[in-house]
Design a binder for these strands. Structure first.
Length: 510
RNA sequence: GCCCCUAUCGUCUAGAGGACUAGGACUCAGGCCUUUCAAGCCUGCGACAGGGGUUCGAAUCCCCUUAGGGGCACCA
């Protein structure tokens, strides 16, 4: 159990270098859940101190993705807050001030090593079989040497003067104590020569200034946690609680999930949130799915609402071991959410996808009575919203656009072309006369006809399915007929009869 | 190479020394239902990495081994 009585301040601190990644989102979800659980704040901070890698497009991608998932931040870009600015590149002066404070107190120093010099140093270390790391060569130079280098105008960075002896113990909320020899902290760079801070300085200064109580981040940060602890100590600040979340593994189980799409056994997996938006995953399903990786609601239930998760979430219950995302479960969960939706809601959510895939304007679709009839028919058959088009496209075509390139598909089970034509003609007569033209009347009439013809329903019905939709797999038959209406249904059946006759004639000629 | 983290079915997980013949979910296989496809229902396959301790008793605590993962930048 974590102390849930005190409101926590947690931050999600991505760097805007690419598209929003599922691994990042899982961290953001845990941040959000913990903030809500404790009645605290969820803060968004942009870590854009690497000017070379900054990608302006990714800001939009990030905020869109977070909002899609319902992870609205309480403080941060676009919404402001009392601890701003929340974009690190706008906080340059703050970091410079704190770096100077560290230099003044003897906890940091300027280093004048060039990139080439450092590269050579590492090469030599590796050649000697030593582990590569800065050898502190500028830590103990004399004041005269320092003055000389400054006078020459040599560019410099600010490095942390790490303790040379002893050990540092970082307590991680889900992993316990992590102990590291201070000697292994090799005076990392705090301020780069361009005047920007490195992650290490910026994160410590900002987490302190923004009064962050719990630092949630990926386990790839474990190795720098002792450095951060040491920095908090050097400033004389109290460190926040560290929580290193398990990394998300590649679906293949090999290594961290990559930052690009991967193909495994012919299936494509994307690590980017926007791809799931596009495919028609529901944000609430995605949220539910991701929440179950590294944390669990209880021993039995895997489907739960956001509020239920907020009520139970506790960082102390997070599982420390790395996990691959179980994508087959995502499909299942999404299907569950779709099935549980109010049909009117589903219809509204389907409109943008159908509009895109069918080439019909959203306004036109929304007003089309066929859509309302179709949605309940496909609701339990949908795994993702983007599948809808292929399931209902036939309804939006004209009878001429339904073609039968392979007329044999029209054939009922164990029926030849002549028998199938007879079936279709029987059905056509029923379709012309049945009253009312609704599901029950149609089913009754067709079942009676199948009986009379001494055919199994499946074998009698299937020619109509293909005639009407052009496909062997479709939504339920009679409901589909009702959506089309009597005239359109009849026209398609007649076209199918004609297609079969033509194919019989062709076969005779040969 | 060095440092650190982790280890339960194929995958995601439950498990806080006795409630474990190790539970759930997804996937897969079989069956039922059925106008196709789904959905639903039932059944099945399937795991405590290995070895030492501690203890009356270990999936659970300790150690070693092994395996997997992360890190060793003027990137985050």
């Amino acid at each position: 159990m974590t102390d849930s009585t005190r409101p926590a301040r947690v931050r999600f601190a991505p760097s805007p270098t690419g598209f929003l990644h599922l691994g990042s989102v899982r961290t953001a979800i845990f941040d959000w859940l913990f903030a809500r659980h404790t009645g605290g704040q969820f803060i968004l901070r942009i870590e854009d101190t690497d000017q070379k890698r900054f990608n302006p497009e990714s800001m939009q991608n990030l905020t869109t993705g977070l909002r899609w998932l319902g992870l609205q931040w309480d403080e941060g870009p676009e919404v402001g807050g009392p601890y701003g600015p929340y974009v690190q590149s706008e906080r340059r002066d703050i970091y410079q001030q704190y770096a100077q404070q560290l230099i003044d107190s003897g906890h940091a120093y300027r280093c004048y090593a060039t990139a080439e010099e450092l590269e050579q140093m590492r090469a030599e270390q590796t050649a000697r079989g030593e582990s590569p790391g800065y050898d502190r060569r500028y830590r103990w130079i004399s004041d005269e040497e320092r003055a000389q280098l400054e006078a020459e105008g040599r560019p410099s960075v600010v490095r942390f003067a790490a303790p040379l002896e002893g050990t540092t113990v970082v307590h991680d909320l889900i992993r316990g104590d992590i102990t590291v020899e201070n000697e292994s902290v090799r005076d990392p760079v705090l301020m780069k020569s361009d005047g920007m801070p490195t992650y290490h300085l910026a994160v410590v200064v900002d987490d302190h200034l923004m009064e962050i109580t719990h630092v949630l981040r990926g386990e790839e940060w474990i190795s720098s946690a002792p450095l951060h602890k040491l920095l908090f100590d050097a400033f004389g600040w109290e460190a926040p609680v560290f929580v290193h979340l398990p990394v998300i593994l590649d679906p293949s189980g090999k290594g961290k999930m990559s930052k690009r799409k991967t193909v495994i056994n012919g299936l494509e997996f994307s690590p980017f949130v926007h791809d799931y938006m596009e495919q028609g995953y529901l944000p609430e399903a995605m949220f539910n799915f991701l929440t179950n990786v590294g944390w669990s609601y209880d021993a039995e239930e895997e489907i739960f609402t956001r509020d239920e998760a907020v009520a139970r979430f506790d960082l102390a219950d997070v599982n420390p071991s790395a996990a691959a995302l179980p994508f087959s479960k995502l499909e299942w969960i999404n299907g569950v959410y779709i099935r549980n939706m109010d049909p009117a809601d589903l219809q509204a959510r389907l409109v943008p996808y159908l509009s895109r895939d069918l080439g019909i304007s959203e306004a036109e679709l929304a007003a089309d009575p066929r859509l309302a009839g179709l949605v309940p028919l496909i609701q339990e058959r949908l795994k993702v919203l983007s599948e809808a088009a292929e399931k209902v496209d036939w309804a939006f075509k004209t009878s001429d656009e339904i073609t039968y390139p392979d007329p044999d598909l029209l054939l009922g089970r164990k029926l030849d072309a002549a028998q199938t034509i007879a079936v279709l003609e029987t059905g056509a007569a029923l379709l012309a006369d049945v009253e009312p033209f609704d599901h029950d009347a149609l089913e009754a009439a067709f079942r009676a006809a199948a009986d009379a013809a001494e055919l199994k329903p499946g074998s009698f019905f299937s020619p109509f399915r293909v005639a009407i939709t052009g496909k062997t797999v479709s939504p339920p038959l009679f409901e589909s007929m009702v959506v089309l209406g009597r005239d359109e249904t009849l026209a398609r059946v007649q076209n199918a009869i004609a297609a079969l006759r033509a194919s019989v004639a062709e076969a005779v000629e040969e």
